[in-house]
Amino acid sequence: MIVRVLDIGIAGLLLGGIYALIAVGLTLQYGVARVLNIAHGEFIMIGAFITWSLYIIFGINPLLSLAICGPAIFTIGFLLYRTLFRRLRISSASPAAFEGSSMLACFGLLFIIQNLAILIWGADIKGYSYLAFPIRFWGQTFAANRLITLGFALAIGLIFYFFLTWSRLGKAIRAAAQDAAAAELMGINIDQVLALCFGFGALMAGLGGTLLSMSYKIQPTMGLEYTVIALIVIVLGGLGSIPGSFIGGLLLGLVGSIVTYIQPGLSLVAYYLLFMLLLLAKPTGILGK
């Protein structure tokens, strides 16, 4: 029995790790920079496809791709904020108006990125095998690539958490998350901080994509479903709370795993039911105030 519980628990964490990572990315973009980034999943997709190309064409180890994808996608995200979203933020009359207009812009980006990906890589499903072998411990079997994924997701999450807690920039980001206007008054260059936030968000998505591509098949249209999951998780965790979305991601993975074990047909229903019940019971999320 205990073995069974452990098995389900770890299976849930394996999935939850990736959810956590991409949700942290979206929290930075939506919770802090206030951009409802519907194109979040497209950054995941780009990360996955770059990794695939590097592995198939140049034989570059997917884990090494983390170091290549991350900075590249960070730059894209950062520049996008500096050019596009900064302009929208300034020209929007209210935060609500900015939310609407940035959503429209993100939709445009989604279309552009997806179309470019189809033109570059074709519309078909792609994949590769990496570390696809079982590892046994505690009497249970787990997939090596998924364990590695979880390990990296946790490590990236921890590093980022320490960065937020200890560094000056991290503190500025947290200040911006709590109250952008006040942070600006305190002498924080809010444009720069929000652009960095958006960039870090894209970075997390890109890293998530790289890790995903190790155990899932990829295609240019895969983005939206991850965006949807990330949206759920960031609300679960409490909007703007970075540790909250990390925990929320792990939790969603666990719930999915438990329900899949009992009644697989209901696993997705469970996601949304949990999400909505929690919203009703505690609208500010697990770690919200």
Partner: peptide, 12 residues
């Protein structure tokens, strides 16, 4: 999608 997306971004 490319054209439509570009129009959306420019429009906003």
């Amino acid at each position: 999608m490319l054209i439509f997306g570009t129009i959306m971004v420019i429009a906003i």
